[in-house]
Computed example of a mutant assay.
Amino acid sequence: MYQYKFLKRLFILIASFSLLSCGDHNQPGVAVSAVEHTNSGAFAAALSIDGRYSLVSSVAEGVALWDNHSNTLKYQWLQSEQQQNLVHSVAIAYDNSVAVTASDHEFAVWNMQTGHNLGYYQVSKASIRDIAVSNGGRYVLFGQSDNTVVFVDLETGKRLEFLGHSEKINSIALSPNGHFALSGGNDYSAYFWDTRSGQVIHRFNHPSRVTKVALDDSGRYAFTADSMKKASIWQLTSGELVSQLQYIARQKIFSTVRFNATGTLLATGTPNRLLSVWSVKNGERLASWQVTPREGSRPKSAVIFAVAFQDNDATLLAESSNGILERFEREK
């Protein structure tokens, strides 16, 4: 009888270990190199599509543009002409022409080649939640706390307000040419819409609030994720589901998302240090790593703000709240 109980317990232990080893939290890898971009931690960050540039906002040092090829500081910018506001949203245009920075009630556009400011813009109606900019800096898109997504043509001054959402906006994305937008909010919905007319092309429904959206830069796919356990990749032409990310966590929040150039891979970052690469075709996780928590930070964690593919997808770059650019390598 004793031998039977022992064997039974041993079987349960082995089965439990097998389930854990095959689950959502396989042992992640670590960075192969790191470069400090701020000595006080970051409040927001963006990476250019090619990983060449990092845009990092910190409370103590303002907004800094780094050239990652030469590991040199290119420019430092202040959000306001009068005072240094707290920049919580930043973005870089697909063609590396301009960058945009935003605080609660102001955004600014910057020329990335000259460092010159191209304009400061006040937003008084509601606070900015997320921001994006088109190639050349002509168009800016931002989501607000009053359920509205605003599209602005900075060349003509034309302004379009998208009113499809019924609750506050959490995440937005803009196509490189500025003609299409994706927005997600607390109303359990994400909308893919035409910025020239405001017309909805597709609506993507979720069982909880939509916390992160992203567009494939070539116009093939959209990504939408909610606050619980549904993260989906959609075909933009038809609006049909391509895949759902496969994980067993009951709750998973994504803080950054990016498709690779060929539309075959998706990189994600989370508020708890986890960087992952997924197959677009079937949603399978192919690799994962952890960014480094800042020394002395409490708790020992870091929010991943931005990720980029490099070297034909063999390398990933990540910018996090630790204020450090980290480089990760995928196994062949």
Rank of each mutant, 00 (worst) to 15 (best):
Q122I: 10
E319M: 06
F151H: 14
Q235P: 00
A15H: 02
D146W: 06
I248C: 04
G23K: 00
F180Q: 12
A31Q: 10
K229A: 15
S89V: 03
T292G: 08
L325P: 00
V303C: 07
S33K: 10
V291G: 12
A102F: 01
H202E: 06
V90Y: 01
N85T: 03
A314K: 15
S80K: 11
G296L: 03
S238R: 09
G283A: 11
E295R: 12
G41D: 05
Q144Y: 01
K168F: 11
S171I: 03
N71F: 14
N111Q: 02
K8H: 09
L20G: 09
W77H: 12
A249Q: 14
P207M: 11
T292C: 06
A44D: 14
Q199V: 05
F305P: 03
K158H: 14
V35H: 12
G178F: 05
Y4M: 06
G29K: 04
G136C: 07
K5C: 05
V98H: 07
Q310E: 13
E295H: 12
N147M: 09
F305T: 02
G185A: 15
K252W: 10
Q144M: 15
S54I: 01
S197P: 01
S320M: 05
L286V: 08
K5T: 08
K230Y: 14
Q27I: 13
Q3F: 07
S103A: 13
F142E: 09
T38G: 06
L13T: 13
L118E: 13
G51L: 08
R9F: 11
G198L: 04
A46R: 01
V98P: 02
S321P: 08
D153G: 09
A102D: 01
A181D: 03
K230Q: 15
L47Y: 10
G184H: 04
H116E: 14
T38M: 03
D67V: 12
Y120M: 04
T262R: 11
N147Y: 06
L275A: 10
T195N: 10
M228F: 10
Q27G: 01
H37P: 00
K281D: 14
V150Y: 01
T148C: 01
E167G: 01
R250Y: 05
D95R: 05
S145N: 14
V242T: 15
Q290V: 02
L65K: 09
L316C: 08
T264E: 14
N170E: 13
G23C: 12
Q76W: 03
R196Y: 11
G41R: 02
C22Y: 02
K281W: 01
N282R: 08
L13W: 10
H88F: 05
N272Q: 13
S16C: 12
P207G: 12
F259H: 04
A261C: 00
L163D: 07
V277D: 04
G143L: 05
Q79K: 05
T148P: 00
V90W: 00
A34C: 04
S80A: 13
Y191P: 03
E155N: 13
R138C: 13
V90I: 08
V32F: 00
D313K: 07
G178P: 04
D104L: 11
G41M: 05
A46D: 14
W278G: 11
F162K: 06
S40Y: 13
S227T: 09
G41E: 03
N96K: 11
G119P: 06
S276M: 08
I304V: 15
Y191C: 07
A126D: 13
L275D: 09
N260W: 02
